[in-house]
Simulated assay, not measured.
Amino acid sequence: MNIEELRLLIADVLEIEPEEVTDEAHFTDELDIDSLLMLEISTRVETAFGVPENTVVISGASTLAELHAFVVSKLVGEMPARPVIRPRPLSDPAVRLFLLHHAGGSHLLYRGWAQHFPQSWELCLLEAPGRGHLQALPLIDDCDRLVDYFHTAVAPLLDRPSGFFGHSMGALIAYQLTRRLHHEGDPLPTWLGVSAYGAPRGEASADGRPHLMSDDELRGWLRSVGGSPPQLLDNDDVWRKFAPVFRSDFKLVNTWASPRDPEPLPIPLSVFGGHRDRLIGEDRLLSWRSFTTHFRGLEMYEGDHFYLMNHQQPLADAITAAMRSAAV
Rank of each mutant, 00 (worst) to 15 (best):
21 V>G: 05
35 S>R: 09
212 L>E: 14
113 W>I: 00
102 H>K: 03
63 T>Y: 00
264 P>E: 06
309 M>H: 14
20 E>W: 10
209 R>S: 11
325 S>Y: 03
36 L>E: 11
240 R>N: 13
178 T>E: 02
289 R>T: 09
3 I>E: 14
114 A>T: 03
268 P>M: 07
306 F>K: 07
73 S>A: 15
84 V>W: 01
14 L>E: 10
282 E>M: 09
60 G>W: 06
304 D>G: 14
133 H>N: 14
48 A>V: 08
250 F>H: 06
77 G>T: 09
85 I>W: 10
128 A>H: 03
143 C>T: 15
323 M>V: 14
143 C>M: 14
32 D>P: 00
68 H>F: 13
154 V>L: 08
158 L>P: 04
245 V>I: 15
172 L>V: 12
64 L>N: 08
76 V>K: 10
47 T>C: 04
193 G>R: 08
109 L>K: 05
7 R>Q: 15
67 L>P: 09
90 L>E: 01
148 D>H: 12
27 F>E: 05
64 L>D: 07
190 T>K: 12
270 S>Q: 15
278 R>Q: 13
157 L>P: 05
69 A>T: 12
13 V>Y: 02
159 D>T: 10
165 F>D: 02
161 P>C: 07
128 A>D: 04
220 G>A: 02
288 W>S: 05
40 E>V: 11
123 L>I: 10
276 R>K: 12
320 T>Q: 12
116 H>V: 03
251 K>G: 02
256 W>K: 07
171 A>W: 09
189 P>I: 09
269 L>H: 10
311 H>P: 00
318 A>T: 11
21 V>P: 04
214 S>V: 07
8 L>I: 03
323 M>A: 02
158 L>T: 08
323 M>F: 07
144 D>S: 15
325 S>A: 15
187 P>K: 08
296 R>I: 00
92 D>I: 06
95 V>Y: 08
78 E>I: 10
94 A>V: 13
288 W>L: 12
307 Y>T: 07
150 F>G: 06
183 H>L: 13
60 G>C: 09
73 S>K: 12
76 V>S: 14
69 A>F: 00
80 P>E: 07
13 V>H: 03
4 E>T: 11
312 Q>K: 15
81 A>Q: 13
144 D>C: 09
257 A>G: 08
190 T>V: 14
12 D>H: 14
143 C>S: 12
158 L>S: 10
317 D>E: 15
142 D>K: 03
176 Q>V: 04
65 A>H: 11
245 V>G: 06
316 A>Y: 10
292 T>K: 01
71 V>F: 02
114 A>D: 12
119 Q>L: 13
26 H>Q: 13
121 W>V: 00
322 A>S: 15
31 L>K: 03
203 E>A: 14
236 D>Q: 14
